[in-house]
Design a protein around this nucleic acid. Structure first.
Lengths: 142, 142
DNA sequence: CAAACTGGTCAACCAAGTTGTCTAGTTGCA
DNA sequence: TGCAACTAGACAACTTGGTTGACCAGTTTG
């Protein structure tokens, strides 16, 4: 399985470099949380759970961790007094920017090994496949 | 992350189709066990653990499951009386053949969506990248 | 305005891994 | 050749990242 090995090789490198620079033990799954919270203002723990495809309890646990580490802040929800709106702190936003930079670094390295044209073909092929797969009603990823 | 999503989409489909036909709850990790045992006659649990990159206890546990389900057989090791040689039963071999057929089915579908030429380029690009990554001493996958 | 529903928390549990300890068999070397 | 060091595998206790179930307080709806 070439995809598996490539994916694995890239994420391994990503976390390797992350570990060089970073402090808290951020795990792969956290990336999706960050991205979601950045995109969805005043998201709740339940929203996040639905997005990640896990139980609300699991999502809450992850959020608690990120709050402890200072990446996420809980604020009163604007319209629902039961709920808490989750937002990234400055530290959280910094991390996200850093992660994005790291990914594009890895992508550049990929391009320099296989060539920019091949990368373009590859990107297009994967997008085509995913579009087709989604259209067939295969469940979405994350 | 296109790789991640593609990888996920394909393995999801794989296990979906597997579930249609299959009986025991074979999980993704089991595939690697089967392939290794088929390739390495009289492998031991410790060998398997090293191959998978997990502790020997974890490997032993997985093997016990596969033995219970009738995919793997434990026989006395030819040269070491402490050890047990692990081999696939007929059922195990059947499963491996079936899984291979399923993968090439998925690959054919991939090719029919993105085109055979693009698939060829893609395959080559990934292999190039992985070769480069390995050469740099990044740890091997599984 | 009461019934049904929903966000969040607490608690018990589970699956898949970990480390540590032990026994029995194997190997290397003085 | 015999003993010390090593190793395959079993057993047990623990960790991690998830699960389901019960519950309370606040929200929505007929």
């Amino acid at each position: 399985m070439l995809f598996a090995r490539t994916f694995r090789a890239m994420t391994d490198r990503f976390h390797e470099r992350l570990a060089d620079r970073d402090l808290e033990p951020l795990r792969p799954a956290h990336g999706y949380v960050f991205r979601y919270l950045a995109a969805q203002p005043s998201a709740t723990a339940v929203d996040l759970a639905a997005h990640l495809g896990v139980s609300k309890q699991a999502a809450t646990k992850t959020v608690a961790e990120l709050v402890d580490w200072g990446y996420v802040r809980r604020t009163p929800h604007p319209t629902d007094r039961r709920a808490q709106a989750l937002t990234l702190t400055g530290k959280g936003q910094d991390y996200l920017r850093f992660a994005d930079a790291l990914w594009s670094e890895l992508e550049d390295e990929f391009a320099s090994v296989v060539g920019a044209e091949r990368l373009a073909v590859l990107r297009e092929a994967l997008q085509t496949y995913l579009a087709a797969a989604d259209a067939e009603g295969i469940r979405p990823v994350w």
